[in-house]
């Protein structure tokens, strides 16, 4: 009988990917978003004021 001397390898845990900091992206996205949001309502109220 052949003895298996292959060592069972333990599953290596996946390397945890380090989360990038998205703080700068968040600020910029919210800056552009607020600009669009505010301009939309300014234009809408301009339209309503001229009815």
């Amino acid at each position: 009988m052949q003895h298996s001397d292959v060592e069972t390898k333990e599953a290596t845990p996946l390397k945890e990917t380090k989360e990038h900091s998205l703080k700068g992206t968040l600020y910029f996205v919210m800056f552009i978003g607020s600009f669009i949001f505010i301009s939309w309502f300014v234009i809408y109220f301009l339209f309503l004021s001229r009815i």
Binding site: E19, L22, K23, L26, M30, I36, W40, Y44
Partner: peptide, 22 residues
């Protein structure tokens, strides 16, 4: 999803729904 991604996606989709509702 990163926590911040959830924030701006909620903001974006919410704005779109609000604009279309108005």
């Amino acid at each position: 999803l990163h926590k911040y991604e959830k924030i701006w996606m909620t903001f974006g989709i919410g704005s779109l729904v609000l604009f279309l509702a108005v």
